[in-house]
């Protein structure tokens, strides 16, 4: 899992792409739990960083990336290039984190 290269460039620096394996993607939908929501509500009074949300989104994005990498490995790739992230809020309490890129084989 660790030796796969992930980059948002169109190539891997210093390496030649031998084969394109198509798009790979990973997503996750997360809801915040109530406790966090209440804490964030309190934090909203004084402003500043809502740390609970930051952590939640970091974890979720990590998971989406892992899923994307998993799919790439399944396809036999050793790198994922041109990775993009996108976030969409589905309802007021939940958001979807989505990561996608192109799986390739580099030399």
């Amino acid at each position: 899992m660790t030796d796969i290269i992930v980059t948002n460039l169109e190539t891997v620096p210093g390496r030649q792409i031998i084969k394109h394996l198509g798009i790979v993607q990973g997503n996750t939908v997360r809801a915040k739990h109530v406790g966090r929501d209440i804490m964030a509500g309190l934090k909203n009074i004084v402003g500043g960083e809502l740390r609970g949300y930051t952590e939640l989104l970091t974890d979720a994005r990590e998971e989406a990336t892992q899923r994307m990498m998993g799919e790439a490995i399944e396809k036999g790739a050793n790198a994922v290039v041109n990775v993009r992230f996108s976030t969409s809020s589905i309802t007021a309490g939940a958001s979807e984190l989505y990561a996608y890129g192109t799986a390739v084989v580099v030399e």
Partner: peptide, 28 residues
């Protein structure tokens, strides 16, 4: 920019940074 200089080592890694921020009650 996407254009890379020539003097790079092989490989690269995706790095991210994120933050969630809100304004205070008074400003709202």
């Amino acid at each position: 920019i996407k254009t890379l200089p020539d003097n790079l080592e092989k490989g690269g890694a995706l790095v991210t940074g994120n933050v969630v921020i809100a304004v205070d009650y008074f400003k709202v």
